[in-house]
Write a protein that binds this DNA or RNA. Structure first.
Lengths: 242, 242
DNA sequence: CGTTTCGTTGAAGAGTGTCAAGGCCAGTGG
DNA sequence: CCACTGGCCTTGACACTCTTCAACGAAACG
Protein backbone atom coordinates (compact mmCIF):
# COMPACT_ATOMS: atom_id res chain seq x y z
CA UNK A 1 0.00 0.00 0.00
CA UNK A 2 1.14 3.46 -0.71
CA UNK A 3 -0.57 5.10 2.22
CA UNK A 4 2.60 5.63 4.16
CA UNK A 5 4.16 7.34 1.20
CA UNK A 6 1.55 10.02 0.95
CA UNK A 7 2.88 13.27 2.19
CA UNK A 8 0.23 14.51 4.52
CA UNK A 9 0.30 18.22 4.78
CA UNK A 10 -2.56 20.40 5.80
CA UNK A 11 -0.61 23.34 4.47
CA UNK A 12 -0.84 21.94 0.96
CA UNK A 13 -4.43 20.99 1.32
CA UNK A 14 -6.90 23.13 -0.55
CA UNK A 15 -9.47 22.48 2.14
CA UNK A 16 -7.64 24.16 4.95
CA UNK A 17 -10.18 26.95 5.18
CA UNK A 18 -12.97 24.47 5.69
CA UNK A 19 -11.32 21.80 7.70
CA UNK A 20 -9.86 21.27 11.11
CA UNK A 21 -7.10 23.85 11.37
CA UNK A 22 -9.29 26.90 10.97
CA UNK A 23 -8.06 29.86 12.95
CA UNK A 24 -4.70 28.48 13.95
CA UNK A 25 -1.43 30.29 13.71
CA UNK A 26 1.10 28.87 11.30
CA UNK A 27 3.07 27.44 14.18
CA UNK A 28 0.06 25.66 15.66
CA UNK A 29 -0.85 24.67 12.19
CA UNK A 30 2.29 22.69 11.63
CA UNK A 31 1.86 20.92 14.93
CA UNK A 32 -1.61 19.77 13.94
CA UNK A 33 -0.11 18.38 10.78
CA UNK A 34 2.00 16.05 12.82
CA UNK A 35 -1.02 14.55 14.46
CA UNK A 36 -2.91 14.10 11.25
CA UNK A 37 -0.23 11.78 9.99
CA UNK A 38 -2.10 9.27 7.93
CA UNK A 39 -4.72 9.08 5.27
CA UNK A 40 -7.01 6.33 4.35
CA UNK A 41 -8.65 5.43 1.08
CA UNK A 42 -12.08 3.90 0.92
CA UNK A 43 -13.33 2.37 -2.26
CA UNK A 44 -16.82 3.06 -3.43
CA UNK A 45 -19.23 0.90 -1.47
CA UNK A 46 -16.78 0.16 1.35
CA UNK A 47 -17.25 1.55 4.80
CA UNK A 48 -15.03 3.87 6.79
CA UNK A 49 -16.46 2.47 10.00
CA UNK A 50 -19.54 0.68 11.15
CA UNK A 51 -21.88 0.95 14.09
CA UNK A 52 -20.34 -0.80 17.05
CA UNK A 53 -16.76 -0.28 15.89
CA UNK A 54 -14.46 1.06 18.51
CA UNK A 55 -14.09 4.81 18.24
CA UNK A 56 -10.58 6.09 18.15
CA UNK A 57 -10.38 8.60 15.37
CA UNK A 58 -12.20 11.41 13.71
CA UNK A 59 -11.94 11.67 9.96
CA UNK A 60 -11.70 14.68 7.72
CA UNK A 61 -12.94 14.05 4.22
CA UNK A 62 -10.23 15.02 1.76
CA UNK A 63 -11.96 14.04 -1.40
CA UNK A 64 -14.91 11.92 -2.31
CA UNK A 65 -18.38 11.50 -0.92
CA UNK A 66 -19.80 9.51 1.99
CA UNK A 67 -23.10 8.74 3.61
CA UNK A 68 -23.85 7.83 7.18
CA UNK A 69 -26.63 5.41 7.95
CA UNK A 70 -28.33 4.36 11.10
CA UNK A 71 -29.95 1.00 11.57
CA UNK A 72 -33.15 0.80 13.56
CA UNK A 73 -34.15 -2.13 15.70
CA UNK A 74 -36.22 -3.66 12.94
CA UNK A 75 -33.34 -3.82 10.51
CA UNK A 76 -34.58 -0.97 8.41
CA UNK A 77 -31.85 1.59 7.94
CA UNK A 78 -31.85 5.25 7.22
CA UNK A 79 -29.39 7.74 5.82
CA UNK A 80 -28.66 10.43 8.40
CA UNK A 81 -26.28 12.53 6.36
CA UNK A 82 -24.02 12.97 3.38
CA UNK A 83 -20.47 14.14 3.78
CA UNK A 84 -18.21 15.87 1.33
CA UNK A 85 -14.68 17.24 1.22
CA UNK A 86 -13.69 19.33 4.20
CA UNK A 87 -16.28 17.87 6.54
CA UNK A 88 -15.50 16.07 9.77
CA UNK A 89 -16.96 12.62 10.34
CA UNK A 90 -17.18 10.43 13.41
CA UNK A 91 -18.32 12.85 16.10
CA UNK A 92 -21.04 10.44 17.14
CA UNK A 93 -18.41 8.08 18.50
CA UNK A 94 -17.19 10.40 21.24
CA UNK A 95 -20.17 9.82 23.48
CA UNK A 96 -19.65 6.13 24.08
CA UNK A 97 -16.24 5.27 22.64
CA UNK A 98 -17.89 3.33 19.88
CA UNK A 99 -19.53 4.41 16.70
CA UNK A 100 -23.30 4.48 16.45
CA UNK A 101 -23.71 4.64 12.70
CA UNK A 102 -22.16 3.26 9.55
CA UNK A 103 -20.25 5.54 7.23
CA UNK A 104 -19.93 4.33 3.66
CA UNK A 105 -18.19 5.76 0.62
CA UNK A 106 -20.47 6.64 -2.29
CA UNK A 107 -17.46 7.11 -4.52
CA UNK A 108 -13.77 6.43 -4.06
CA UNK A 109 -12.85 8.58 -1.12
CA UNK A 110 -9.85 9.70 0.83
CA UNK A 111 -9.93 10.83 4.44
CA UNK A 112 -7.37 12.20 6.85
CA UNK A 113 -7.24 10.15 10.03
CA UNK A 114 -7.26 12.22 13.21
CA UNK A 115 -6.47 10.08 16.26
CA UNK A 116 -8.87 11.29 18.89
CA UNK A 117 -6.69 10.84 21.94
CA UNK A 118 -3.88 12.78 20.41
CA UNK A 119 -6.00 15.63 19.21
CA UNK A 120 -7.56 15.68 22.65
CA UNK A 121 -4.22 15.97 24.43
CA UNK A 122 -3.11 18.50 21.95
CA UNK A 123 -6.19 20.62 22.23
CA UNK A 124 -5.65 20.78 25.97
CA UNK A 125 -2.69 23.05 25.32
CA UNK A 126 -4.27 24.91 22.45
CA UNK A 127 -7.43 26.83 23.23
CA UNK A 128 -8.03 27.84 19.64
CA UNK A 129 -8.26 24.22 18.59
CA UNK A 130 -10.36 23.27 21.59
CA UNK A 131 -12.70 26.02 20.72
CA UNK A 132 -12.86 25.03 17.12
CA UNK A 133 -13.65 21.43 17.97
CA UNK A 134 -16.54 22.46 20.14
CA UNK A 135 -17.84 24.73 17.42
CA UNK A 136 -17.73 21.93 14.91
CA UNK A 137 -19.73 19.74 17.26
CA UNK A 138 -22.21 22.46 17.98
CA UNK A 139 -22.59 23.12 14.28
CA UNK A 140 -23.44 19.47 13.79
CA UNK A 141 -26.16 19.81 16.42
CA UNK A 142 -27.56 22.84 14.64
CA UNK A 143 -27.40 21.08 11.30
CA UNK A 144 -29.40 18.20 12.70
CA UNK A 145 -31.98 20.59 14.06
CA UNK A 146 -32.42 21.73 10.50
CA UNK A 147 -32.92 18.18 9.31
CA UNK A 148 -35.51 17.65 12.02
CA UNK A 149 -37.38 20.67 10.75
CA UNK A 150 -37.22 19.30 7.26
CA UNK A 151 -38.43 15.85 8.23
CA UNK A 152 -41.04 17.07 10.64
CA UNK A 153 -42.75 19.85 8.81
CA UNK A 154 -42.07 19.83 5.10
CA UNK A 155 -43.75 17.94 2.37
CA UNK A 156 -42.04 15.94 -0.32
CA UNK A 157 -41.26 18.68 -2.82
CA UNK A 158 -40.18 21.10 -0.16
CA UNK A 159 -37.81 18.54 1.27
CA UNK A 160 -36.28 17.88 -2.08
CA UNK A 161 -35.94 21.58 -2.86
CA UNK A 162 -34.22 22.14 0.48
CA UNK A 163 -31.95 19.21 -0.21
CA UNK A 164 -30.91 20.45 -3.64
CA UNK A 165 -30.30 23.96 -2.38
CA UNK A 166 -28.24 22.62 0.50
CA UNK A 167 -26.09 20.58 -1.85
CA UNK A 168 -25.76 23.53 -4.17
CA UNK A 169 -24.54 25.73 -1.36
CA UNK A 170 -22.05 23.17 -0.15
CA UNK A 171 -20.64 22.67 -3.60
CA UNK A 172 -20.28 26.39 -4.04
CA UNK A 173 -18.42 26.69 -0.72
CA UNK A 174 -15.92 24.22 -2.13
CA UNK A 175 -15.37 26.12 -5.33
CA UNK A 176 -17.59 24.02 -7.56
CA UNK A 177 -20.54 25.20 -9.53
CA UNK A 178 -23.58 25.91 -7.45
CA UNK A 179 -25.90 25.36 -10.37
CA UNK A 180 -24.62 22.17 -11.89
CA UNK A 181 -23.47 19.06 -10.12
CA UNK A 182 -23.58 15.32 -9.95
CA UNK A 183 -25.59 13.48 -7.34
CA UNK A 184 -23.33 10.83 -5.91
CA UNK A 185 -26.17 9.02 -4.20
CA UNK A 186 -29.07 7.02 -5.59
CA UNK A 187 -32.69 8.11 -5.48
CA UNK A 188 -33.28 5.56 -2.77
CA UNK A 189 -30.56 7.14 -0.63
CA UNK A 190 -31.96 10.60 -1.16
CA UNK A 191 -35.35 9.25 -0.21
CA UNK A 192 -34.05 7.57 2.88
CA UNK A 193 -32.41 10.78 4.01
CA UNK A 194 -35.52 12.83 3.31
CA UNK A 195 -37.97 10.35 4.75
CA UNK A 196 -39.49 9.59 1.35
CA UNK A 197 -39.70 6.63 -0.98
CA UNK A 198 -37.52 6.59 -4.04
CA UNK A 199 -40.53 6.85 -6.33
CA UNK A 200 -41.56 10.05 -4.63
CA UNK A 201 -38.10 11.50 -5.09
CA UNK A 202 -38.14 10.55 -8.73
CA UNK A 203 -41.55 12.09 -9.26
CA UNK A 204 -40.59 15.28 -7.51
CA UNK A 205 -37.46 15.61 -9.63
CA UNK A 206 -39.48 15.05 -12.77
CA UNK A 207 -41.98 17.62 -11.64
CA UNK A 208 -39.27 20.20 -10.97
CA UNK A 209 -37.85 19.52 -14.39
CA UNK A 210 -41.25 19.93 -15.98
CA UNK A 211 -41.59 23.29 -14.24
CA UNK A 212 -38.18 24.29 -15.56
CA UNK A 213 -36.77 24.67 -12.08
CA UNK A 214 -34.04 22.17 -12.81
CA UNK A 215 -32.74 19.90 -15.52
CA UNK A 216 -32.14 16.28 -14.65
CA UNK A 217 -30.20 13.74 -16.61
CA UNK A 218 -29.68 10.69 -14.45
CA UNK A 219 -27.36 11.80 -11.65
CA UNK A 220 -26.54 15.05 -13.34
CA UNK A 221 -28.53 18.02 -12.04
CA UNK A 222 -28.59 21.59 -13.22
CA UNK A 223 -30.42 24.20 -11.22
CA UNK A 224 -32.18 26.62 -13.51
CA UNK A 225 -34.13 28.76 -11.10
CA UNK A 226 -32.78 28.74 -7.58
CA UNK A 227 -35.07 31.57 -6.53
CA UNK A 228 -38.24 29.70 -7.33
CA UNK A 229 -36.81 26.62 -5.65
CA UNK A 230 -36.19 28.68 -2.55
CA UNK A 231 -39.67 30.10 -2.78
CA UNK A 232 -41.04 26.58 -2.61
CA UNK A 233 -39.67 26.18 0.87
CA UNK A 234 -41.83 28.63 2.69
CA UNK A 235 -44.93 27.99 0.69
CA UNK A 236 -46.52 25.02 2.40
CA UNK A 237 -48.76 27.10 4.60
CA UNK A 238 -49.05 30.60 3.23
CA UNK A 239 -51.51 31.54 5.86
CA UNK A 240 -52.21 35.18 6.63
CA UNK A 241 -51.06 36.06 10.12
CA UNK A 242 -53.85 36.93 12.41
CA UNK B 1 -35.74 38.68 43.91
CA UNK B 2 -34.43 35.92 46.03
CA UNK B 3 -32.15 34.42 43.46
CA UNK B 4 -28.98 35.61 45.11
CA UNK B 5 -30.05 34.02 48.36
CA UNK B 6 -30.30 30.57 46.94
CA UNK B 7 -27.44 28.47 48.07
CA UNK B 8 -26.18 26.90 44.97
CA UNK B 9 -24.45 23.68 45.74
CA UNK B 10 -23.99 20.83 43.32
CA UNK B 11 -23.10 18.68 46.32
CA UNK B 12 -26.60 19.08 47.69
CA UNK B 13 -28.21 18.56 44.34
CA UNK B 14 -29.94 15.26 43.84
CA UNK B 15 -29.09 15.43 40.17
CA UNK B 16 -25.38 15.28 40.53
CA UNK B 17 -25.15 11.86 38.96
CA UNK B 18 -26.90 13.06 35.86
CA UNK B 19 -25.62 16.54 35.50
CA UNK B 20 -22.45 18.37 34.73
CA UNK B 21 -20.05 17.22 37.42
CA UNK B 22 -20.08 13.56 36.53
CA UNK B 23 -16.77 11.86 37.16
CA UNK B 24 -15.08 14.68 39.02
CA UNK B 25 -13.14 14.33 42.23
CA UNK B 26 -14.59 16.05 45.26
CA UNK B 27 -11.98 18.74 44.98
CA UNK B 28 -12.77 19.46 41.35
CA UNK B 29 -16.39 19.20 42.25
CA UNK B 30 -16.28 22.09 44.65
CA UNK B 31 -14.48 24.21 42.10
CA UNK B 32 -17.22 23.63 39.58
CA UNK B 33 -19.70 24.75 42.19
CA UNK B 34 -18.04 28.12 42.27
CA UNK B 35 -18.57 28.62 38.59
CA UNK B 36 -22.18 27.57 38.68
CA UNK B 37 -22.97 30.41 40.98
CA UNK B 38 -26.45 31.42 39.98
CA UNK B 39 -29.78 29.94 39.28
CA UNK B 40 -32.60 31.26 37.25
CA UNK B 41 -36.31 30.68 37.49
CA UNK B 42 -38.51 30.62 34.44
CA UNK B 43 -42.24 30.78 34.79
CA UNK B 44 -44.37 28.53 32.72
CA UNK B 45 -44.69 29.94 29.24
CA UNK B 46 -41.67 32.19 29.55
CA UNK B 47 -38.51 31.55 27.62
CA UNK B 48 -35.04 30.81 28.88
CA UNK B 49 -33.58 32.23 25.69
CA UNK B 50 -34.69 32.86 22.16
CA UNK B 51 -33.20 32.36 18.73
CA UNK B 52 -30.84 35.20 18.02
CA UNK B 53 -30.05 35.89 21.66
CA UNK B 54 -26.39 36.21 22.42
CA UNK B 55 -24.98 32.94 23.71
CA UNK B 56 -23.03 33.19 26.91
CA UNK B 57 -24.21 30.39 29.14
CA UNK B 58 -25.21 26.80 29.18
CA UNK B 59 -28.05 25.83 31.47
CA UNK B 60 -28.56 22.73 33.54
CA UNK B 61 -32.19 22.01 34.27
CA UNK B 62 -32.65 21.66 38.00
CA UNK B 63 -36.33 21.13 38.08
CA UNK B 64 -39.17 21.66 35.68
CA UNK B 65 -39.70 20.96 32.04
CA UNK B 66 -38.73 22.81 28.86
CA UNK B 67 -39.12 22.54 25.13
CA UNK B 68 -36.92 23.88 22.38
CA UNK B 69 -38.45 25.11 19.18
CA UNK B 70 -37.04 26.07 15.86
CA UNK B 71 -38.70 28.53 13.54
CA UNK B 72 -38.51 27.89 9.83
CA UNK B 73 -38.35 30.58 7.20
CA UNK B 74 -42.10 30.50 6.68
CA UNK B 75 -42.91 31.25 10.28
CA UNK B 76 -44.02 27.75 11.03
CA UNK B 77 -42.22 26.45 14.08
CA UNK B 78 -41.35 23.02 15.30
CA UNK B 79 -40.44 21.45 18.61
CA UNK B 80 -36.96 19.93 18.41
CA UNK B 81 -36.77 18.55 21.91
CA UNK B 82 -38.04 18.37 25.46
CA UNK B 83 -35.72 18.84 28.39
CA UNK B 84 -36.05 17.65 31.95
CA UNK B 85 -34.10 17.79 35.17
CA UNK B 86 -30.43 17.00 34.85
CA UNK B 87 -30.20 17.80 31.16
CA UNK B 88 -27.97 20.44 29.65
CA UNK B 89 -29.51 23.06 27.39
CA UNK B 90 -28.00 25.62 25.07
CA UNK B 91 -25.34 23.63 23.24
CA UNK B 92 -26.62 24.92 19.93
CA UNK B 93 -25.31 28.38 20.81
CA UNK B 94 -21.65 27.43 20.83
CA UNK B 95 -21.35 27.26 17.08
CA UNK B 96 -22.09 30.87 16.34
CA UNK B 97 -22.13 32.68 19.70
CA UNK B 98 -25.84 33.13 19.42
CA UNK B 99 -28.72 30.79 20.03
CA UNK B 100 -30.48 29.18 17.11
CA UNK B 101 -33.64 28.03 18.83
CA UNK B 102 -36.11 29.16 21.47
CA UNK B 103 -36.24 27.35 24.78
CA UNK B 104 -39.48 27.75 26.68
CA UNK B 105 -40.64 26.49 30.06
CA UNK B 106 -43.63 24.15 29.97
CA UNK B 107 -43.97 24.43 33.73
CA UNK B 108 -42.28 26.59 36.30
CA UNK B 109 -38.65 25.71 35.96
CA UNK B 110 -35.34 26.35 37.61
CA UNK B 111 -32.00 26.12 35.87
CA UNK B 112 -28.40 26.46 36.97
CA UNK B 113 -26.58 29.05 34.90
CA UNK B 114 -23.20 27.91 33.64
CA UNK B 115 -21.23 30.82 32.17
CA UNK B 116 -19.63 29.39 29.08
CA UNK B 117 -16.40 31.35 29.09
CA UNK B 118 -15.66 30.38 32.64
CA UNK B 119 -16.43 26.73 32.20
CA UNK B 120 -14.30 26.84 29.09
CA UNK B 121 -11.29 28.29 30.91
CA UNK B 122 -11.84 25.93 33.73
CA UNK B 123 -12.12 22.88 31.53
CA UNK B 124 -8.78 23.78 30.01
CA UNK B 125 -7.13 22.80 33.28
CA UNK B 126 -9.40 19.87 33.97
CA UNK B 127 -9.36 17.10 31.40
CA UNK B 128 -12.16 15.15 33.06
CA UNK B 129 -14.53 18.05 32.61
CA UNK B 130 -13.36 18.74 29.11
CA UNK B 131 -13.99 15.15 28.27
CA UNK B 132 -17.38 15.17 29.85
CA UNK B 133 -18.45 18.26 27.96
CA UNK B 134 -17.51 16.69 24.68
CA UNK B 135 -19.37 13.54 25.59
CA UNK B 136 -22.49 15.50 26.39
CA UNK B 137 -22.30 17.20 23.01
CA UNK B 138 -21.70 13.95 21.22
CA UNK B 139 -24.60 12.37 23.04
CA UNK B 140 -26.80 15.17 21.80
CA UNK B 141 -25.70 14.39 18.26
CA UNK B 142 -26.54 10.73 18.76
CA UNK B 143 -29.88 11.61 20.27
CA UNK B 144 -30.75 13.70 17.26
CA UNK B 145 -29.79 10.86 14.96
CA UNK B 146 -32.42 8.86 16.77
CA UNK B 147 -35.00 11.55 16.20
CA UNK B 148 -34.13 11.61 12.53
CA UNK B 149 -34.75 7.89 12.39
CA UNK B 150 -38.07 8.38 14.08
CA UNK B 151 -39.17 11.20 11.78
CA UNK B 152 -37.84 9.62 8.64
CA UNK B 153 -38.95 6.05 8.87
CA UNK B 154 -41.69 5.49 11.41
CA UNK B 155 -45.40 5.89 11.09
CA UNK B 156 -47.63 7.75 13.49
CA UNK B 157 -48.23 5.07 16.12
CA UNK B 158 -44.65 3.92 16.08
CA UNK B 159 -43.49 7.46 16.66
CA UNK B 160 -45.80 7.91 19.56
CA UNK B 161 -44.82 4.60 21.09
CA UNK B 162 -41.15 5.52 20.80
CA UNK B 163 -41.90 8.87 22.36
CA UNK B 164 -43.73 7.42 25.34
CA UNK B 165 -41.05 4.81 25.94
CA UNK B 166 -38.37 7.46 25.76
CA UNK B 167 -40.16 9.60 28.31
CA UNK B 168 -40.71 6.58 30.51
CA UNK B 169 -37.04 5.74 30.48
CA UNK B 170 -36.00 9.28 31.26
CA UNK B 171 -38.40 9.51 34.16
CA UNK B 172 -37.11 6.24 35.51
CA UNK B 173 -33.51 7.46 35.31
CA UNK B 174 -34.57 10.33 37.56
CA UNK B 175 -36.15 8.13 40.14
CA UNK B 176 -39.75 8.62 39.07
CA UNK B 177 -42.13 5.95 38.00
CA UNK B 178 -41.48 4.58 34.56
CA UNK B 179 -45.06 3.50 34.14
CA UNK B 180 -46.99 6.52 35.26
CA UNK B 181 -46.29 10.14 34.55
CA UNK B 182 -47.69 13.46 33.51
CA UNK B 183 -47.19 14.91 30.07
CA UNK B 184 -46.10 18.47 30.54
CA UNK B 185 -46.67 19.33 26.91
CA UNK B 186 -49.83 19.66 24.84
CA UNK B 187 -50.88 17.27 22.11
CA UNK B 188 -49.94 19.93 19.60
CA UNK B 189 -46.42 20.07 21.00
CA UNK B 190 -46.06 16.31 20.92
CA UNK B 191 -47.31 16.38 17.37
CA UNK B 192 -44.90 19.09 16.37
CA UNK B 193 -42.02 17.13 17.82
CA UNK B 194 -43.10 13.91 16.12
CA UNK B 195 -43.98 15.48 12.80
CA UNK B 196 -47.69 14.80 13.24
CA UNK B 197 -50.85 16.82 13.67
CA UNK B 198 -52.39 17.03 17.09
CA UNK B 199 -55.45 15.10 15.94
CA UNK B 200 -53.24 12.23 14.90
CA UNK B 201 -51.56 12.21 18.29
CA UNK B 202 -54.90 12.24 20.02
CA UNK B 203 -56.20 9.40 17.91
CA UNK B 204 -53.10 7.32 18.43
CA UNK B 205 -53.33 7.81 22.19
CA UNK B 206 -56.98 6.80 22.14
CA UNK B 207 -56.13 3.78 20.08
CA UNK B 208 -53.38 2.69 22.48
CA UNK B 209 -55.81 3.09 25.35
CA UNK B 210 -58.41 1.04 23.54
CA UNK B 211 -55.82 -1.71 23.07
CA UNK B 212 -55.02 -1.55 26.78
CA UNK B 213 -51.43 -0.55 26.11
CA UNK B 214 -51.83 2.59 28.15
CA UNK B 215 -54.37 4.52 30.16
CA UNK B 216 -54.83 8.16 29.37
CA UNK B 217 -56.60 10.77 31.42
CA UNK B 218 -55.81 14.15 29.96
CA UNK B 219 -52.11 14.71 30.60
CA UNK B 220 -51.83 11.77 32.91
CA UNK B 221 -50.47 8.63 31.27
CA UNK B 222 -50.02 5.16 32.67
CA UNK B 223 -48.15 2.56 30.67
CA UNK B 224 -49.84 -0.79 31.04
CA UNK B 225 -47.88 -2.93 28.63
CA UNK B 226 -44.45 -1.59 27.82
CA UNK B 227 -43.47 -4.79 26.03
CA UNK B 228 -46.21 -4.55 23.48
CA UNK B 229 -45.47 -0.88 23.03
CA UNK B 230 -41.88 -1.76 22.31
CA UNK B 231 -43.00 -4.47 19.93
CA UNK B 232 -44.84 -1.83 17.95
CA UNK B 233 -41.59 -0.14 17.07
CA UNK B 234 -40.10 -2.76 14.84
CA UNK B 235 -43.34 -3.87 13.32
CA UNK B 236 -43.82 -1.50 10.42
CA UNK B 237 -42.20 -3.77 7.90
CA UNK B 238 -42.08 -7.30 9.27
CA UNK B 239 -40.70 -8.55 6.02
CA UNK B 240 -39.00 -11.93 5.86
CA UNK B 241 -35.32 -11.50 5.09
CA UNK B 242 -34.38 -12.96 1.82
C1' DC C 1 -68.68 32.28 35.60
C1' DG C 2 -67.59 33.35 31.20
C1' DT C 3 -63.63 32.86 28.14
C1' DT C 4 -60.00 30.55 26.26
C1' DT C 5 -57.20 26.82 25.55
C1' DC C 6 -56.96 22.04 24.98
C1' DG C 7 -58.63 17.55 23.68
C1' DT C 8 -61.62 14.13 21.27
C1' DT C 9 -63.99 12.32 17.45
C1' DG C 10 -66.02 12.00 12.70
C1' DA C 11 -66.04 12.52 7.65
C1' DA C 12 -63.82 13.79 3.54
C1' DG C 13 -59.75 14.68 0.90
C1' DA C 14 -54.78 15.22 -0.22
C1' DG C 15 -50.28 13.43 -0.28
C1' DT C 16 -47.34 9.45 -0.19
C1' DG C 17 -46.64 4.74 -0.20
C1' DT C 18 -47.17 0.33 -2.59
C1' DC C 19 -47.10 -2.59 -6.42
C1' DA C 20 -46.03 -3.43 -11.03
C1' DA C 21 -44.18 -2.84 -15.61
C1' DG C 22 -40.81 -1.13 -18.49
C1' DG C 23 -36.63 1.68 -19.95
C1' DC C 24 -31.87 3.03 -19.59
C1' DC C 25 -27.15 2.21 -18.61
C1' DA C 26 -22.69 -0.03 -17.29
C1' DG C 27 -20.37 -4.06 -16.76
C1' DT C 28 -19.61 -9.01 -18.14
C1' DG C 29 -18.93 -12.78 -20.79
C1' DG C 30 -19.77 -15.17 -24.89
C1' DC D 1 -19.28 -6.73 -31.10
C1' DC D 2 -23.49 -8.15 -29.16
C1' DA D 3 -26.56 -10.33 -25.88
C1' DC D 4 -27.22 -10.70 -21.19
C1' DT D 5 -27.56 -9.29 -16.55
C1' DG D 6 -28.41 -6.47 -12.66
C1' DG D 7 -28.83 -2.05 -10.67
C1' DC D 8 -31.03 2.23 -11.09
C1' DC D 9 -34.66 5.20 -12.61
C1' DT D 10 -39.30 6.52 -14.36
C1' DT D 11 -44.17 6.28 -14.68
C1' DG D 12 -48.94 4.68 -13.83
C1' DA D 13 -52.79 2.90 -11.03
C1' DC D 14 -54.41 2.03 -6.71
C1' DA D 15 -54.39 1.71 -1.52
C1' DC D 16 -53.72 3.70 2.71
C1' DT D 17 -52.11 6.82 6.18
C1' DC D 18 -52.41 11.11 7.75
C1' DT D 19 -54.16 15.76 7.34
C1' DT D 20 -57.82 18.98 7.02
C1' DC D 21 -62.10 20.80 8.37
C1' DA D 22 -65.62 20.88 11.61
C1' DA D 23 -68.23 20.33 15.74
C1' DC D 24 -68.36 19.56 20.40
C1' DG D 25 -66.98 18.70 25.23
C1' DA D 26 -63.74 19.31 29.12
C1' DA D 27 -60.51 21.56 31.74
C1' DA D 28 -57.86 25.72 33.03
C1' DC D 29 -57.72 30.59 33.95
C1' DG D 30 -58.60 35.16 35.09
Amino acid sequence: MNLANLRVACSNCNLRELCLPVGLSSDEFSRVEQIVATRRRIHRGDSLFRAGDRFDSLYAVRLGFLKSTLMSSDGHDQVTGFHMAGELVGLDGISSDSHTCDVTALEDTEVCVIPYERIEEFAATLPALQNHLRKVMSREIVREHGVMLLLGSMRAEERLAAFLLNLSQRFEARGYSRSEFVLRMTRAEIGSFLGLKLETVSRALSHFAQEHLIEVDQKHVRILDADRLRALLGSSAPKPER
